[in-house]
């Protein structure tokens, strides 16, 4: 039996995403929880120690553990945002934008038009990953301080527009690294049954539109 390449690609991506989600959950619920138990245990012991040198050493250890817990939590969120499964695409996008502005100093205006509709988890993750990649490209290449993301909830489809007024690029010019990234975004949308379009010109910014049919 020969399966179409698109189905195989789709299956590989889906399996990878499931594995990423499992690792993220394991980090958050398993490793993170165990570290937190150790943290509270150390705090309890610290309260019962009178030797100032030992107390200070234990306090330093507790502080390192607190940092580690935060690192594990952030790594887990980075791998797979919990808001995506719990509250859906728009909430996850909103939460990611906050983190993005805090990380890169780029303000992102988020606009939503229409009533939010149900999108399957599999499609949610595709849209979220392509959206993440588009914002990462703005941070890496656009040289701008602001961007706009618009969600358009229509009867039959969802469109997400990501626009910036940065330096833009000539889409006809060869730039293998950039082109590969864009090709991957396009392919992911295509495999999910959606579309990916991009418009850009030097000094004119970049406009990306993702569309996905809603069932």
């Amino acid at each position: 039996m020969v399966m179409p390449v698109s189905e195989i690609s789709s299956y590989i991506i889906h399996t990878q995403e499931e594995e990423i989600k499992r690792i993220a959950l394991e980090l958050h619920e398993g490793v993170g929880q165990n570290l937190y138990s150790l943290f509270t245990g150390l705090q309890f012991i610290e309260g019962g120690i009178e030797n100032p040198v030992m107390k200070s050493a234990l306090k330093d250890m507790t502080a390192v553990l607190a940092k580690t817990i935060q690192e594990v939590r952030l790594l887990s969120v980075e791998l797979h945002p919990p808001a995506l499964s719990a509250f859906g695409l728009f909430a996850a996008t909103k939460s990611y934008i906050k983190l993005y502005t805090n990380t890169f100093g780029i303000e992102v205006e988020l606009i939503t038009i229409g009533k939010e509709r149900l999108v399957s988890e599999k499609e949610n993750i595709v849209l979220f990953r392509v959206f993440q990649e588009a914002l990462a490209n703005i941070a890496k290449h656009a040289d701008t301080s602001c961007a706009t993301v618009t969600f358009r909830w229509e009867e039959t489809f969802l469109a997400i527009e990501i626009a910036d007024e940065g330096v833009g690029f000539d889409s006809n010019e060869e730039n293998s690294r950039n082109n590969l990234g864009l090709a991957v975004m396009k392919e992911r949308m295509h495999l999910a049954g959606g579309t990916f379009t991009i418009q850009s010109q030097r000094e004119q910014g970049t406009y990306i539109k993702l569309t996905l049919p809603l069932r």
Binding site: K67, Q70, E71, T101, N102, T103, F104, G105, I106, S145
Partner: peptide, 12 residues
Amino acid sequence: NDKYKKINVRFG
């Protein structure tokens, strides 16, 4: 630009 004012870098 003033982007540096909004940037928070994670420890490490």
